[in-house]
Simulated assay, not measured.
Amino acid sequence: MANLTFKALQAREIAGGGFETAIVDRTTDSLPEGEVLVKVRYSSLNYKDALSAAGNKGVTREYPHTPGIDAAGEVVEDTSGAFAPGAEVIVTSYDLGMNTSGGFGQYIRVPAAWVAPLPEGLSLKEAMMLGTAGLTAGMCVQRIAEAVVPGAGPIVVSGATGGVGSISVAILSKLGYQVAAVTGKPEAAPFLESLGASEIIARDEIGEPEKRPLLKSRFAGAVDTVGGPILENIIKSAQPMAVVASCGNAASPQLNLTVFPFILRGVSLVGIDSQNFPMPARRAVWQHLATDWKPGQLMSMAEVVGLEGLQEKIGLILKGQLKGRVVVDLWG
């Protein structure tokens, strides 16, 4: 097909060290190999995108680079034959936006194995209000719901104002669970309560290292997005047979624990890997997110910006000052 010119946010190294981002013109011929060319309508901002934009070589090895681990749009062409032109699709995680040109460009080209059909019940915009954060939240909720019934006790969500945290609060509340939201932002309490949190826990209350191997039994389950002492204390405070879903390490990747919560209370610590989540299971979670798990507050949880508004939001998310979700309108 014809070589198309499009707009993209590009991160690049600058003389003397450091990185900067700029909106540039690119061509579809410059995109990597792959069976599916997608015209991206919407993307979303995630912490990993901000790290890539800031030059984190642990996320992105080579620059210049277009971040964006999420994308939703229409298929332009698919040489594999899996998707018809015009089909609405979602592409999240795998290597998109890390070392493969990502959703902060108006076009992407990716392997067909990375592409999921947009489920009925979600618009492209709503899909990116969820994005990888929503997929990750859905995976956490799925593992908790397999073993913990509503009414068993509170489900605690750490980093509750972030993308994964806020969506987890909304989904769990919709499913009838009592939700305790952990945040370091007291002013965010009304926002979290609007999502369905029935209890707000100050981060300082649960974030200090605790030497005791077990704490008072408190939580029937958990979605932890931060790791470190908060995750340690959640595990130590878990009720018998609780399920703790771990999906982030913003505070620390280290855990200082004994085995006592696991062998004396039967607590399960479940790791969540949304990047390489198998496609059949991925589609099943997206179907839930489009139907019975779809947050009723979705529109109020997200702010929409264009490419030109991304740099400010990248700075905020790196400082831990972003609340809810940021959706990127690639053509707005």
Score class of each variant (00 low, 15 high):
residue 14 I to Q: 07
residue 84 A to H: 08
residue 59 V to H: 00
residue 315 G to R: 06
residue 308 E to S: 12
residue 147 A to R: 06
residue 184 G to T: 13
residue 332 G to A: 05
residue 226 V to E: 10
residue 302 A to F: 10
residue 131 G to L: 04
residue 181 A to H: 14
residue 59 V to C: 02
residue 35 E to P: 05
residue 47 Y to S: 10
residue 216 K to N: 14
residue 25 D to W: 14
residue 105 G to E: 09
residue 209 P to M: 11
residue 159 G to T: 04
residue 14 I to M: 03
residue 77 E to M: 00
residue 188 A to S: 09
residue 151 G to A: 02
residue 185 K to E: 03
residue 267 V to Q: 00
residue 181 A to L: 15
residue 167 I to E: 10
residue 143 R to T: 03
residue 244 V to S: 04
residue 225 T to G: 00
residue 156 V to T: 03
residue 67 P to W: 14
residue 171 I to Q: 06
residue 284 A to S: 15
residue 321 Q to A: 02
residue 319 K to M: 04
residue 91 V to N: 12
residue 68 G to L: 11
residue 265 R to F: 09
residue 315 G to H: 00
residue 214 L to T: 09
residue 119 P to Y: 01
residue 24 V to I: 15
residue 138 G to Q: 12
residue 33 E to R: 01
residue 13 E to V: 05
residue 109 R to L: 08
residue 249 N to Q: 11
residue 15 A to Q: 15
residue 159 G to M: 07
residue 160 A to G: 04
residue 166 S to G: 12
residue 63 Y to P: 10
residue 220 A to L: 03
residue 137 A to I: 03
residue 126 E to I: 07
residue 117 P to D: 10
residue 321 Q to R: 12
residue 62 E to H: 15
residue 137 A to T: 07
residue 120 E to G: 13
residue 119 P to K: 00
residue 122 L to W: 14
residue 61 R to E: 14
residue 8 A to S: 02
residue 171 I to K: 07
residue 96 L to T: 03
residue 93 S to W: 08
residue 206 I to C: 14
residue 172 L to R: 03
residue 228 G to D: 05
residue 115 V to N: 14
residue 213 P to H: 08
residue 207 G to Y: 02
residue 126 E to M: 03
residue 274 S to A: 15
residue 77 E to P: 05
residue 118 L to M: 02
residue 75 V to P: 06
residue 231 L to S: 04
residue 108 I to Y: 06
residue 238 A to S: 11
residue 154 P to N: 10
residue 80 S to N: 00
residue 294 K to I: 03
